[in-house]
C-alpha cells in the first residue's frame, strides 16, 4: 500500500514539491517529472530536504526530463534514482494509487 506522488513544478517557482513532501506517508514514492526535476540537482536549495525525505521515501527523477534540461545524472542529489517512461509506468503500476501535485 503506497502512493506514487508526481511533481512537475520547479520548487523555485511553485510550492508543489513542498506540499507533496508535507503529505507523504511512510513508504510512499516521489517522482519528479517535467520542471519538477529541477529540484533534483545537487547544490540546489532543495537538495537537503530531498536528501532527508529520501531516507524514508524513495525519490525518483525522470531521466528524459533531466536530459532535456541539461542536468547530468552524476549531478543529482545523492539517493535520487532515475527512471525512463517505462520506469514511470512500473512505479505507477506497483503503487496503490498515483497522486499528481499539479
Amino acid at each position: 500500500m503506497s502512493t506514487l506522488h508526481t511533481v512537475n513544478k520547479s520548487p523555485y517557482e511553485r510550492n508543489a514539491l513542498k506540499s507533496c513532501l508535507d503529505h507523504l506517508s511512510a513508504g510512499d514514492l516521489v517522482l519528479l517529472i517535467e520542471d519538477g526535476v529541477l529540484a533534483a540537482r545537487k547544490g540546489g536549495a532543495f537538495a537537503q530536504v530531498l536528501g532527508d525525505v529520501g531516507r524514508s521515501c524513495k525519490i525518483y527523477a525522470l531521466n528524459p526530463d533531466l536530459a532535456a534540461r541539461g542536468i547530468a545524472v552524476g549531478d543529482l542529489v545523492e539517493g535520487i534514482q532515475t527512471v525512463d517512461y517505462g520506469g514511470f509506468v512500473d512505479l505507477a503500476a506497483d503503487a496503490t494509487r498515483v497522486c499528481a501535485w499539479l
Partner: peptide, 26 residues
Amino acid sequence: INEGPYTHQASDTAYRFAKAALEKGH
C-alpha cells in the same frame, strides 16, 4: 490530461507514458 499541447509539457509526458505502458503490455 489537463493542458493543451505545446504551452505545457503535460500532453507530451502523458503521450510518452501511454506509449511506454502499451509497450509493456498494459
